[in-house]
Amino acid sequence: MPRTTPSQTVGPFLHIGLADDPYAADEGAPGGLWIRGTVYDGAGAPMPDAIVETWQADPDGRFDHPADPRGARTSPGFRGFARCATDADGAYSVFTRKPGAVPGPAGPQAPHIDVSLFARGMLRRVVTRLYFPEDAAARAADPVLSAITDDRERDTLLARAADDGYRFDIRVQGPGETVFFDV
């Protein structure tokens, strides 16, 4: 049996090392909704061995973190962080509440959810953002989203409305590849 070393990718140990809790908000929280999607690899096949992690502000635009300059306070029953492993079909689901706008160094940022992806073949996570379709004016003024000049690339960050929340598919490579940020 080969020994594992720090230079290997996350491989088969991915699900062992990262706990799964898909609830950023308490189940049944007022305004609660599901973010659902599928993670696809470079060949367009669903990835059954990935983990999607989300971090976001609460509906008032505050983070549950001491570094929030307005003070760490969030809505009751809201923690702002969730992690969900993909299933055999590459699907994930996270239960949360829609975030509010947050201040940024270059102006207000539109309501968004930061999304990290951990998966096979990756030495480091990749990070993207999910924006909401009904926030067109806020998205147009968002300094991060405005830095992406290609409309097709910008569209990869836009969730689609669904019956119980939103749909946000992630494509790691290839046609329609999701925009990832260098953080």
Score class of each variant (00 low, 15 high):
residue 86 T to S: 11
residue 117 L to S: 05
residue 47 M to L: 15
residue 15 H to Y: 06
residue 86 T to W: 14
residue 35 I to Q: 00
residue 22 P to L: 03
residue 76 P to T: 08
residue 24 A to R: 09
residue 18 L to E: 09
residue 5 T to N: 12
residue 129 R to A: 09
residue 42 G to T: 02
residue 104 G to T: 04
residue 2 P to E: 07
residue 71 G to N: 10
residue 112 H to I: 01
residue 123 L to A: 12
residue 173 Q to P: 00
residue 32 G to E: 09
residue 6 P to D: 11
residue 98 K to C: 08
residue 175 P to E: 13
residue 84 C to V: 13
residue 72 A to H: 11
residue 28 G to P: 11
residue 182 D to A: 14
residue 140 A to N: 13
residue 30 P to I: 14
residue 63 F to K: 00
residue 114 D to M: 06
residue 147 A to K: 01
residue 139 R to C: 12
residue 129 R to Y: 10
residue 183 V to H: 07
residue 7 S to C: 01
residue 132 F to D: 01
residue 120 R to C: 00
residue 132 F to R: 03
residue 118 F to A: 08
residue 126 V to P: 03
residue 82 A to C: 02
residue 92 Y to R: 03
residue 158 L to F: 08
residue 7 S to L: 12
residue 67 A to L: 15
residue 127 V to R: 13
residue 33 L to N: 01
residue 146 S to H: 06
residue 96 T to V: 09
residue 108 P to G: 03
residue 170 I to S: 08
residue 108 P to Q: 08
residue 90 G to N: 07
residue 44 G to E: 10
residue 38 T to A: 06
residue 175 P to H: 05
residue 65 H to S: 11
residue 137 A to L: 05
residue 137 A to M: 00
residue 48 P to C: 07
residue 146 S to P: 02
residue 19 A to G: 12
residue 103 P to V: 12
residue 133 P to H: 05
residue 67 A to N: 14
residue 112 H to S: 09
residue 174 G to W: 07
residue 106 A to G: 00
residue 105 P to F: 03
residue 67 A to I: 13
residue 130 L to Y: 01
residue 122 M to F: 15
residue 14 L to H: 10
residue 107 G to W: 04
residue 130 L to K: 07
residue 32 G to H: 11
residue 177 E to P: 00
residue 34 W to S: 01
residue 64 D to N: 15
residue 125 R to S: 09
residue 16 I to K: 10
residue 92 Y to F: 15
residue 53 E to G: 09
residue 33 L to P: 00
residue 94 V to A: 08
residue 139 R to P: 04
residue 113 I to Y: 06
residue 60 D to V: 02
residue 118 F to G: 00
residue 23 Y to K: 11
residue 72 A to T: 06
residue 145 L to M: 10
residue 59 P to E: 13
residue 77 G to Y: 10
residue 169 D to L: 04
residue 113 I to S: 01
residue 61 G to D: 01
residue 68 D to N: 09
residue 14 L to R: 14
residue 126 V to W: 12
residue 69 P to M: 03
residue 7 S to D: 15
residue 166 Y to E: 10
residue 88 A to S: 13
residue 58 D to M: 10
residue 164 D to C: 00
residue 7 S to P: 01
residue 152 R to A: 15
residue 156 T to W: 11
residue 56 Q to G: 06
residue 114 D to N: 07
residue 174 G to H: 13
residue 86 T to C: 14
residue 11 G to C: 08
residue 151 D to L: 08
residue 169 D to V: 01
residue 183 V to G: 05
residue 20 D to L: 03
residue 84 C to G: 05
residue 72 A to I: 12
residue 38 T to E: 07
residue 13 F to I: 11
residue 85 A to R: 15
residue 80 G to D: 01
residue 110 A to F: 09
residue 126 V to S: 12
residue 28 G to N: 13
residue 102 V to T: 15
residue 121 G to D: 14
residue 14 L to F: 12
residue 179 V to A: 14
residue 1 M to P: 06
residue 80 G to C: 04
residue 149 T to K: 14
residue 32 G to R: 03
residue 133 P to D: 07
residue 180 F to S: 03
residue 72 A to Y: 04
residue 183 V to L: 11
residue 181 F to G: 03
residue 70 R to L: 14
residue 103 P to R: 05
residue 60 D to R: 15
residue 85 A to K: 15
residue 45 A to W: 02
residue 176 G to T: 09
residue 150 D to R: 02
residue 158 L to G: 06
residue 179 V to S: 05
residue 49 D to L: 06
residue 33 L to S: 00
residue 25 A to P: 04
residue 159 A to M: 11
